[in-house]
Design a protein around this nucleic acid. Sequence first.
DNA 1: AATGCATATAATCATTTCGTTATATACTAT
DNA 2: ATAGTATATAACGAAATGATTATATGCATT
Lengths: 105, 105
Amino acid sequence: MREKQSIEAMSQFLKALSDSTRLEIIRRIQGKEHCVCEFVEMFDISQPAISRHLKVLKTAEVILERRDRQWIYYRLNEAHPQYGIVLQILKGLESEPALSPACGC
Amino acid sequence: MREKQSIEAMSQFLKALSDSTRLEIIRRIQGKEHCVCEFVEMFDISQPAISRHLKVLKTAEVILERRDRQWIYYRLNEAHPQYGIVLQILKGLESEPALSPACGC
DNA sequence: AATGCATATAATCATTTCGTTATATACTAT
DNA sequence: ATAGTATATAACGAAATGATTATATGCATT
């Protein structure tokens, strides 16, 4: 059963994306790569926390890194097999209306 | 800033989907609604565990429920504002190759 | 009303996640 | 070599997650 594996991989991939900070990171990263220090300025969490979020995204191969001297730049991995999902999410972020609580019917 | 809210909502939505059991549920639910007892047979976890997974998906409005006598049937909510993401995920599940560990370059 | 089946909720526990502070590593410049 | 800046890792704690067992609820049948 390769389905099991596929489901597991997808779950891991989505977990990497299902965090506000990481969503904001990939939103900002669209079109232009950013170095870690830019994210550190952008968020109200510590530099190590940012670093770990970037590592989660990198491990899931959602983003790629490039070193230039002392700086490390991150960009979207447009070659990811599930890049279509990333795009759909980014599109959804542009104008998502607030979700109302489930009515359940 | 409504972006904050949008990001938070998206994060919640993705969290609901980023679990193997719940992905399997929505995969099976495609096209045909299922009652809870069918999921209970399908998975190796307890009935209360299934029930809670269904509740997570229902709260996120990913699925809708319908009661028929003692049975409760669940189906995909095709009217969800982010249904496009659900479709993209289901598509990705059909033939996703295993992800190799990140090379990091 | 009593019993049985389908489903949900509560209480509890182990594991994972995400933050912090402290420290290590990599590169730059003096 | 030393010091400074950029980034990563380690150690730890609080909160969230996902499982279990026990129990409650809703509906059907006798």
